[in-house]
Design a protein around this nucleic acid. Sequence first.
RNA 1: AGCGGGGUGGGGUAGCCAGGUUAACCCGCGGGGCUCAUAACCCCGAGAUCGGUGGUUCAAAUCCACCCCCCGCUACCA
Length: 678
Amino acid sequence: MSALSKKVIVTAALPYANARLHLGHLRSTYIPADIYVRYLRAKGVDAIYVCATDEHGTPIAVMAEQSGKSCKDYVDYYHKLILEDLLAVGCSFDIFARTTNPEHYELTQEFFKRLLEKGYIYEEEYEQLYCPKCKRFLPDRYVEGVCPYCGSPGARGDACDACGRYLKPSELKEPYCIICKSTPELRTTRHWFFKLSAFQEFLEKWIKENERLPDNVKNFALQWIKEGLMDWCITRDLDWGVPVPVEGAEGKVIYVWFDAPIGYISSTIRYAEERGKPEVWKDYWQNPDAEIVHFIGKDIIYHHAIFWPAMLRAHGDFNLPTIIVAGEFLTLEGKKMSKSRGWVVEIKDYVAKFDPDSLRYYLAVSSPLTKDADFSWDEFLRRHNNELADVLGNFVHRALTFAYRNFGEKIPSAKELDDYDKQAIAEIEKAHSEASKYLDQFDFHSAIRRIIDLASFGNKYFNDKEPWNTIKTDPDKAATTIHVSCRIAKALAIMLAPFIPNAAERMWSMLNLPGSVHEQPWDEALKDLPPDHLIPAPKPLFTKIEPKVIREQKEILRRSLAERTGEAEAPKVSIDEFKKMDLRVGTVIEVERVPGSKNLYKLKIDLGELGIRQSVAGIAPWYKEDELLNKQVAVIANLQPAKIFGVESEVMILAAEDEEGVSILQPDKKKRNGSKIL
RNA sequence: AGCGGGGUGGGGUAGCCAGGUUAACCCGCGGGGCUCAUAACCCCGAGAUCGGUGGUUCAAAUCCACCCCCCGCUACCA
């Protein structure tokens, strides 16, 4: 077991205030962080759970502008909804702040100035795109164009989704302003850069030597370092954000990824102020014995394992992260979630129908954090009904009901303990120490599994002891059995509190123990119950979910997917429009793979009087080269030519596609090359 | 193609990093027990040569090499 220091700050990645959260976010970040912090608190650690919405940056500025709202209104709206959702699933934040708060601006500017003074931020003039019509420079996502590296269109100013490279807006080919679509021009402007390259060696050493950093974080970060770190441009020409605190820098703000992580500190400052102890934030960020534990999704490892530690190191007054836990992703029914495709379960929709504890349980138990997991409604039903309601809920219920009915609404005192009773108590201790060990290692999956196993053991113990028989023959023995069973229930309540806080509290009330389960020290799980202790009439801990309800959920998902992606019936075209298309029959006379591509063939097609034309077709998965050679095919001959994967394609082959794959169309009898298709 | 994650009894997963008792858990299936409890609980059983091949080792699901397949993201799919 690792030695826990006295003060720990637990952070969850700051959600970006432009959309609501879904189950994936909860699984990778917010639920694990919440379980962990609740566990630490129970262990007596002075742990606080800090989070905030991340409210700056060009994506928000662009979306606000496009929806005709002010940035402020826009982020106000999402801040509220995001917080609502997170609270609904039981996230026990000590503070949930905003990066638009004044203390955040203040600290960010202080940070910037410090780095500037220390020479870690330098100024440089360079050419940037300027939109003459909108009369402004175009940062990041205000400009799109063709990626200079992979040639794909729709690359944004900050990065190309196609090849994943980070870009400078001025690198884009054929750029256009996304607001007015006009072509921007290059103008000289000044910007500030963070000297990340100066931390190359430091970071490499820090990451390699940090034994508590999980492997997925380590490996990922080291790869970046190996490729060499580049300085980051950390200012933007934008009016939404933290102003650059330098004379003559009007109209410039600090880049969102510079200010966002500072939000962890500024939120702690706000927390301290709200407590009326404005200095206590220092106990977490400047006390060498304090620990900083960041929970993030795997998509932002770079920012937390490289950029952020370098910033902190450069500043010099703050602790560096102790641990970064990066949660992997969650699929939905085996497929990647996607909001735009309607394949998503939003938190608000979940909590409207189901118990948040069941979700927390499912997400924690289904698989280790360091692995991708899947959310499936059938699996959810099984876990809720079988594990929570039956194994856990029924155990607690049968033990308490027995006590209530047979021992005068009391949990009887234990009499003489036989070997089995002693073994049962030893089981509590075993479960407790093993669950603690797993929690210390962020292995929430094994921890909750181990705790539910204790409930299983309880059922077995109860069965084997047959108190319904011994109550008649040896009431003392029955009393002992019930006492020990209730003791297991008490231990379960305490150990489950971090995972399923509401159910644990219900268990606590049913046991009629003082205070809240959430105020109990972790080791209270090992302690005995008071003698002859009165309890209220037990109620089922979890109600089972009807399969019908789950079928409805699956149907809702299916429909939402169909709505978003279902191809609407094609609009009618006139015969004249159809005639514009020059459809022909031709013969494939040459086939070769397009180098570097997976699915593409380059084909030469003999189209008779039209000559030989080249086509690039994505049919390699379905046809071998020689299956295509000398085959007659249908093509559209007068399509605007285009380059695909850098290869000219003049005509397109017609093919039918369904779930099974692709089948090319051809005439049923051999026809002259170049013959028209009507 | 690049990056990431996988392939373990009928289904879903854990174990793999730190190799070593009868490969674990949930569901399902067959049989039995119990009747306190939310038609819940408990026990027994059938069912896996741990994707393939080769290697390292006294010993491999676990380490190494090569190969096959799946999934996700990104992309071409004229």
